[in-house]
Design a protein around this nucleic acid. Sequence first.
DNA 1: TTGTATGCGTTATCAG
DNA 2: CTGATAACGCATACAA
Lengths: 342, 342
Amino acid sequence: MESVTIKDIARICGVGVSTVSRAMNDHPDINQETKDKIMRVIREHNYIPNNSAQNLKRADAKTIAVLVKGISNPLFARMIKVLEREIQKQHYSLVLQHVDDRQNEVDVAIQLEKEKRLRGIVFLGGYFSHSEEKLKQISVPFVLSTIGLLEDANKEKYASVSVDDVRESSRMVEYLIAKGHRDIAILAAREDDTSIGLLRLQGYYQTLKKHGIKPNPALVVYMKEELGPYTMENGYAMAKELLASGEKFTALFAISDRMAVGACKAILEAGKTVPQDYSVAGFDGLDLAQFYNPTITTIRQPMEEMAEAAIRTLFDMIEQEGKKKHVVFAGELIEGQSVRQI
Amino acid sequence: MESVTIKDIARICGVGVSTVSRAMNDHPDINQETKDKIMRVIREHNYIPNNSAQNLKRADAKTIAVLVKGISNPLFARMIKVLEREIQKQHYSLVLQHVDDRQNEVDVAIQLEKEKRLRGIVFLGGYFSHSEEKLKQISVPFVLSTIGLLEDANKEKYASVSVDDVRESSRMVEYLIAKGHRDIAILAAREDDTSIGLLRLQGYYQTLKKHGIKPNPALVVYMKEELGPYTMENGYAMAKELLASGEKFTALFAISDRMAVGACKAILEAGKTVPQDYSVAGFDGLDLAQFYNPTITTIRQPMEEMAEAAIRTLFDMIEQEGKKKHVVFAGELIEGQSVRQI
DNA sequence: TTGTATGCGTTATCAG
DNA sequence: CTGATAACGCATACAA
């Protein structure tokens, strides 16, 4: 079952390998007849060029890579669709790479850049507090998306597209306060989180402070490490714990929609209802929020627009070594039925 | 920003390239001192071997590929986790490939097999009515999972792991009938579906027939092509249409949990409730079914076990050109709160 | 224990 | 228009 190579094709056709190569790659100076013949033989023999050899040789493959951290994150599915479309439109090819939870996305990027001849990289998700030294190793333009950017990150190295997680989180807490809530619990990320989870928590604290509400540590619940991050399951466990603590609160802000849904289940199991007994708010704007009953009040992140901005920014950087833009999108508060005025 | 190659490392260390290669690949016969030195230089210079060159050269990389069709399918996330773990345990490496909706998964597999030196392939999802000729081109063992296998498929070529979609669908319809329902609507796949969608629909028809219930074509709703397959959105639109038709029914069987949730929303919007006015059943056993309110009665597919069986079967085939097993798992009916006795 | 040389499958650069 | 042939970066048989 040995693979057929370009040499085999050349031999069969009685031509040189370079002619076969020309036929395949639509080179201009080749006799149409020989080309047709070669292409026919290629098809007959199911010949497919070895991609590794191509990558090794080709000066420039016009491919851009999309690295996705957290394949299960439903937010990304929509972004990937957009990226696929736009990249194809620019006649680039796309290589989609899944990054394992344990893997470092920058390492993967560096590796991939050696392997394929990348022109640019889009990072989706992941935590981005990486060393200057590591970042320096990736030599093509890259843009970070939906990643929490801490203040001290070295922003000259790359572009980014995101929402202001502090501000959006704040927006939601403002809303809850405007609805009359003062005892607002939050289902936050892991205590050691340094990414969007931390930013959203900061937004929470800032807004409470602004309104003269003293934060109650008992109302801040951190994610369970042993459960999947941002999942319904985790939100359920967190809310369960919160309710069991007996601490008084009227609103619950979950930093993801999935956690919000999990929390709702915990509340229902406690014999309470949403929003009569507890108001619940989420974050992300997944279809889940809109289809759940009651619909979940949430912050919608404009994923499609963000994906478009990300890829456009990347192409700008590729075509002209432009400065690194940092585009910040505004989220949108979607009022559902899960929050009530008190 | 030119890449550093093995030659550079060799030059810097004052040794030959083969020595560097030996150092990296843990070859036995190499002086520990020179090895240490080489490894230090490698680290200092952030050298990473070019994977394309390795693939081109290496006789055997012990890698197995997992091809996933439909990245947004939440069922697969759990399977992939298992596959990652098991493949690592066998000291193989895993390459996870996303297959676009428009791409043919067999083509992708053939391509990938040329590029990397695959030892085996796991297909997750996708429609599998492929030509004998195409299948023949993939020369390593492969196993299909959670894919609707039609009767006439040539099963000698590959192994498979799945649930019996006809039977499981039938199981649910039996259950609904036992609960006193006779006017059972179904939210099915696209009318031209030839995969699991068709099988589940067959299970529905068979069971109705068995119980002497004449199928009512008005109660069979097909997926909207313009909306994502198996999504909440699609289920919502389908149920909306069904309700608007005015056709009488007491139970609604959606062939995916997400569609079931979408249907619930449509029912609620019509001013009705689940399960008082309409009973709703799903399929898949996602966490969504369990967290929705009411919890959705569904057929749970044992994804983890199926993934384990799939990879074990694959390794069996790799190690000993064994016969192609076709493992069929039983689903489990999970009773939720969305179906009532009438 | 180490270095040199060859080839993996392509593409690109040259002469014909 | 076409065909040798030299890279691409690495692993390995073989020679030292």
